[in-house]
Amino acid sequence: MELCLGATRLSERRTDQNGSEAAIIERCRRQDVEAFGQLIDLYQNRVFGFVKRMVPNAEEAADITQEVFIRAYQNFGRFDARSSVRTWLFRIAYHLCVDRARKVERTPTQVGLADQEFGEEIDVSDVRWQPDQLALQSELMDVVEEGIRSMSDKLRSVLLLHDREDMAYDEVAQLLGVPVGTVKSRLFLARAHLQNVVKAYLEGDNGQ
């Protein structure tokens, strides 16, 4: 009974959130700066996190994130609500990151199928919540971040959008303009690469 009541309340809260976001979007269409500020509050950290992982320089990432919101504000009239605001914002962010990468002509280490070893399992989740392992946990996170940075833009964007931002396959496919199958194969490769990076770290750590 309590569970049902909790589920109902959760559902109501989600409806309220969607309703309030819809109201904010409607005000943003009328170029209401205050409403747009509320929208920034909702998404600034997520967009910044995505951009910071796509761009190596933190200062540049901050500038790009600002540019994302300024462009969104200037072009809000063109937002057709076919996708969610979140998808739309991440699309702008992704394209700005790609443009920036083209300008810099950065060539990340490409992760291909040939240099991957698949299927070997790692076990890292069991140590994550132990207090004495916090330092290790932090180090592991750094390794994961480094592993993400060493991927190509294509793999990294899919991994971050699906696994970090919890977007559905078709949402990611729509955002990146690629088929769903491509999204899945890129995601598999990205995870496999990260799996190898973490495995190498754990094996090296155990060896010491």
């Binding site: 950290n45 996190g49 070997e120 994961v144 199958g181 995870r191 799996q195």
Partner: peptide
């Protein structure tokens, strides 16, 4: 086949790691 491989435990562990990465506050 790719759907199956994406559901493998090793892939899901990596997914959890990525999901639990710390948030980047501005």
């Amino acid at each position: 086949r790719i759907d199956e491989r994406l559901e493998e435990s090793g892939q899901q562990v990596v997914r959890a790691l990525v999901r639990d990465l710390p948030e980047e506050p501005v």
